[in-house]
């Protein structure tokens, strides 16, 4: 039963199974295990990023296509919820309409981009997505009447999902709307993650992997490579948009820094590579480690930089603003030495 839920794709490593169970239980019981607003926020962020990274892995790890527009799709989903909630008023219908229209817009856009770039060369895709994503990012900051520009948008979600809605107390934890909101995010992410797992272990997923390994041969066997690649792009975009919608529901705020920026794109790339390309479980491990590190390690860097303030160069190097540099170095090293990421390592060392 358990294995069927995982679509027959077992973790195939004792340590990995243990890690996955820890992450799953940690996230499932987060409101009770880690009380506090910040910890719950971190847990919700991990849920959303696991989904986002998994959807990116469908593209990068399973299909071998590099996209730089994934945060754009993520942002589209978030924008859908934000705009619908503002224009339709507070309500469940607004959330639903926003989520669906965001996912639809992302799918259509992904289809159009795929049509132009995948037809000729898969390598065009990386460049064209970079161009389109940066144009959209500029566009969003320019159309500030619609999108709030750099300030972003704040909006209201149904009262049942906000901290103001209380309905009791269990084990010393207040049961409020925030809790419901967290479980909405958690279960939606879980369901979509299992769906992705189902997808990559289906015949469709096998064809994608064969295209990644040898597209010429896959075409020769009779699979239309372009169609499969385009379909993977669209699905990946749609799920990224859904992740964006969930993040928007959780945050009750949408801004360029939280959804669209190139930095998030880099973060996602890093999570996939560190966790392990071409394994959905890599997304779980990568996103969890990364978000935890980002939330807690960055502070540590600040403390370390202050402690070494008298030394030359060192405080400059470990300044929290240089976070990205260390990520970059880590990224390059992991592509060289651990191309299969943590999950690949664990499976190989079984």
């Amino acid at each position: 039963m358990g294995l069927r839920l995982l679509s027959g794709d077992a973790p195939r490593s004792g340590i990995l199974s243990l890690l996955l169970i820890v992450v799953f239980l940690g996230l499932a019981l987060a409101p009770f295990l880690f009380p506090g607003v910040r910890a719950l926020h971190t847990a919700a962020t991990i849920c959303v990023f696991i989904l986002l990274v998994a959807s990116y892995d469908l593209l990068l790890g399973y299909s071998g296509i590099v996209s730089f527009a994934h945060t754009m799709f993520f942002g589209l989903g978030a924008c859908g919820v934000a705009l619908a909630s503002i224009h339709m008023g507070r309500g469940w219908d607004a959330l639903l309409v926003g989520t669906l229209s965001g996912a639809l817009a992302a799918t259509v856009l992904a289809y159009v981009i795929g049509l132009f770039s995948l037809r000729v060369r898969a390598i065009f895709f990386a460049m064209i997505t970079l161009a389109v994503a940066s144009a959209v990012a500029v566009l969003v900051s320019q159309l500030f009447q619609l999108t709030g520009g750099e300030d972003g948008l704040t909006y209201q979600i149904p009262r049942e999902l906000t901290p103001a809605f209380r309905f009791g107390e269990v084990f010393g934890t207040n049961l409020n709307g925030r809790l419901l909101n967290y479980y909405l995010v958690f279960f939606a992410c879980l369901a979509l993650f299992l769906l992705l797992l189902r997808l990559v272990n289906s015949p469709f997923g096998r064809v994608l992997q064969s295209i990644r390994e040898n597209d010429f041969r896959a075409e020769a066997i009779g699979y239309r490579v372009v169609h499969y690649r385009t379909a993977a792009t669209c699905m990946s975009a749609a799920i990224a948009a859904l992740a964006g919608s969930l993040y928007a529901i959780w945050l009750r705020y949408v801004g360029p820094d939280t959804t669209l920026s190139f930095e998030i794109m880099i973060d996602v790339l890093l999570m996939v590579v560190i966790g392990g390309m071409g394994t959905m479980y890599g997304a779980v491990i990568g996103a969890t480690i990364f978000v935890l590190a980002q939330n807690y390690l960055q502070n540590l860097m600040g403390v370390a930089a202050e402690a070494t303030a008298n030394l030359p160069l060192i405080p400059d190097l470990i300044d929290p603003n240089r976070w990205l540099m260390w990520l970059g170095i880590l990224f390059v090293l992991s592509v060289y030495f651990f191309p299969s990421g943590i999950v690949g390592r664990l499976r190989a060392g079984r």
Binding site: L324, M325, V335
Partner: peptide, 27 residues
């Protein structure tokens, strides 16, 4: 040099290098 022949790795590695060099300019 280590990633001749693999577009995927080239893109990933050179993006990583781009970030590191940019941050080095900041330093």
């Amino acid at each position: 040099r280590p990633v001749y022949g693999s577009h995927l790795k080239q893109i990933l590695i050179t993006v990583g290098a781009l970030i590191v060099l940019e941050e080095a300019i900041h330093v």
